[in-house]
Amino acid sequence: MGDVQKGLLSVIQKLKGSPEQEQELRIVLLGLDNAGKTTLLKRLASEEVSTITPTQGFNIKSVQSHGLKLNVWDIGGQRSIRPYWKKYLGSTDLLIYVIDSADQKRFEETGQELAELTEDESLTGVPLLVFANKQDLVTAAPAAEIAEGLSLHTYRDREWQIQACSALSGEGVQDGMNWISSQIMNRKK
């Protein structure tokens, strides 16, 4: 992956017939299996969320938000697929990490995966949004508790935010998106 040639391609990409230099961002959506990544993705794209099956590969959708075009990559979270995650981290502008707030048994597992991810070189300094999903379930842990479990406060080298939400009902999702665009705007300045 020579940087020089990448330059060639990015130059050509400018010739794409898209509207005048609309800013495109790459967002990667990760988390354990059954965390609700694909449901969240479909929610973001205002699509039907009732018939979602476990993702074996990955999904991509473009989401318009605050005048930005967000290309969101949702990659399957099953254990066997996780080794492939790192292939999708290159030139990522923002990481969304989704957690099933009601799956207390796997909090440790999800914490480990996140810690491993944030150590990846390609994600250095990349802002992190954690969605504490499934808040519609009574057994869901509150976002603050999850943040503590993940030791988010120890993250010094990147902006982060935890947002309680229910991808199923849509609650809290927009708040997360607002944080994302504020991050992007800040970076542009």
């Binding site: 391609l9 074996q56 990955f58 999904n59 399957g76």
Partner: peptide, 22 residues
């Protein structure tokens, strides 16, 4: 839904395009 194998092929394609152009 895309298969994981697409990514590998895609990367090969990127390499091919880069090489040809260069």
């Amino acid at each position: 839904e895309s298969k994981l194998s697409y990514t590998e092929i895609y990367q090969e394609y990127q390499a091919l395009v880069e090489r040809l152009l260069e």
